[in-house]
């Protein structure tokens, strides 16, 4: 088997494992570590899928900023492990099986869709994988598309970021000198 395909599988399994750790770990920091691992594995999958820029962004933004922020505040807010054990009986026993059922159903359907005479099978003949341009997903092509075809979206998300900054500041209620008014 091709090395890439093997790594693809490995990364996939790691991603799922990380999620499971997040779900079941008692200590939240352990859960956060699991999530971090999952994100890094996903970055790897992106890279194998030839979305190199996105893989890098995943590592920098998600793993490097967002998860760091979360872990910061997990440590800041000094959570003891599971002060919050309560009986979830009602919710777990109703929702759990339902979710499980949904998941299994979707995966089953997925299998049949992919195997059957469906859309995805027909697409395979339309795309010839060999015709993959070598710069697909590289930063040059990516940024070119981003800044020409999707220029407006690019500019627009900057306003979103701006709004987020303003929101955070107003929530925290900083005055303009940067001090907090508590």
């Amino acid at each position: 088997m091709d090395f890439n395909i093997l790594m693809y599988f490995v990364f996939g399994v790691v991603a799922i494992a990380g999620g499971l750790i997040l779900l079941f770990a008692k200590h939240p920091i352990k859960g956060a570590m699991g999530l971090l691992a999952s994100m890094l594995a996903l970055a790897g999958m992106y890279a194998i899928l030839q979305a190199h820029s996105i893989a890098v962004f995943q590592v920098i933004i998600y793993a490097g900023a967002i998860m760091v922020l979360i872990i910061y505040f997990l440590m800041l807010l000094d959570i003891k492990s599971e002060d919050y054990l309560r009986s979830y009986a009602k919710l777990v026993w109703t929702a759990g099986p339902l979710l499980l059922l949904l998941g299994i159903f979707f995966i089953y359907k997925l299998y049949t869709v992919f195997q059957g005479p469906g859309v995805l099978k027909d697409m395979s003949t339309a795309i010839s994988p060999a015709a993959n341009p070598e710069n697909f997903g590289g930063i040059k092509v990516f940024s070119k598309t981003l800044l020409t075809k999707y220029l407006f979206a690019f500019e627009f998300v900057s306003t979103l970021l701006f709004a987020a900054i303003v929101a955070v500041i107003s929530i925290v209620q900083l005055d303009w000198k940067g001090r907090k008014n508590d």
Partner: peptide
Amino acid sequence: NPLGDFIVGSGGIFT
């Protein structure tokens, strides 16, 4: 191209 045919068949299911 690293993945080739795998993309379309079982790779899709896995992903």
